[in-house]
Design a protein around this nucleic acid. Structure first.
Lengths: 192, 192
DNA sequence: CTAGATCCATACGCGAGAGTATGGTAAGCC
DNA sequence: GGCTTACCATACTCTCGCGTATGGATCTAG
């Protein structure tokens, strides 16, 4: 057969399923990740799926692992390279809106906390992120306990923002209202 | 028949179904609110349900209305009576952990944002609460714009805290760690 | 050229949960 | 006592989504 033209059939890999799964999760949430729907989207059938994966849960696990790795890289990239801790914290907030897919997935994962396979992921991710944030505050001269609290606080603000976003109650992501709010958050929570 | 003894059968009302529904939502989330499960819990069958309600969605709607009313009363009671705005804001945070059922329901509703019947409720509730919060900041002498931002900010902190709670990542609700954190939040976000 | 491995299609079985159809029982009029 | 109405039980139908069974097609090795 022709080995890969327009919509030509080329053989799929497990990674393809995982990526498609993450796309669907980003759009409609964890619980909507149905394998037959995925199959239709990829122009294929279930038969393929159960060759690559043993069950729906296993796909979910693999997809989550993939996502988490990506998230770790993101964290290191966007926070690890900046040396001044204040800029690091600011960049953490500015990061909202960029890395769209990764972020939308995360938002849906938050909504699916409680799911046994999702919870541990969220736990690890939150732990990592809060550590990074707290560390930055320490480097700015805060005592460890204070820095830890401040890290948790600022991460909560971030999570709350995501929640409001899910409810369509954040000022549209690139308006002056939005910028003003971010400015306010930074001034309030990040010491100069 | 004896009109109401121990586990005696007495005729059920729509309100009973709504209360049971809210209980179930608090425990297992919106999507787990299945009518046959509810029926089993109440020692009854579906036949009853479809006499009182036309569909599952209509039960959900009624239950949400009931919850929202309750929440409005709560807000007015716990914030309206306190005259000093600073205490009002502090009480808003201390309120977490009290009013257990109402709070657990809210948490699950947040997780179910995106559901067409839930979203508008969350929207209204958030609007009301943020207004209340902003108003308190205004009364403390903030300019309106700043107060609005601060209201949104503190509400976000609250939402983020709920999210962490769903992930079992908050210091156990009555430890000194918890108190210290709350103290920190208050000191950081509420001017004296 | 042929046998095995790879990858996918088709057609089932099955349980959960919504909604329907219909009949039964108890209570209150007339 | 018969009739109506309120309330509930039983027994279905239907859909959705997971998982399985099985066979067909293509590719690669020997």
């Amino acid at each position: 057969m022709k080995p890969a033209q327009k919509g030509e059939r080329t053989t799929l890999s497990a990674a393809d399923w995982e990526r498609a799964a993450l796309d669907l999760i980003a759009e409609q949430g964890v619980q909507a990740m149905a394998i037959e729907l995925l199959a239709r989207r990829m122009g294929i059938t279930k038969g393929s799926f159960y060759w690559h994966f043993s069950s729906r849960e296993s796909l979910l696990d693999q997809a989550l692992i993939r996502w988490e790795k990506h998230d770790v890289r993101n964290l290191k990239a966007s926070l690890g390279e900046i040396d001044h801790p204040r800029d690091r914290l600011i960049s953490f907030f500015r990061r909202v809106g960029k890395e769209k897919l990764t972020h939308e997935v995360f938002s849906e994962l938050c909504a699916a906390a409680g799911h046994p396979h999702v919870e541990p992921v969220l736990e690890r991710v939150a732990e990592r992120r809060m550590k990074y944030l707290s560390l930055a505050f320490e480097e700015m001269g805060m005592e460890p306990d204070l820095a830890r609290h401040q890290g948790r606080l600022i991460y909560s603000v971030y999570l709350g923002f995501l929640q409001l976003q899910r409810q369509r109650q954040t000022p549209s992501l690139s308006s002056e209202e939005f910028d003003a709010y971010i400015e306010h958050v930074i001034n309030t929570l990040i010491p100069s």
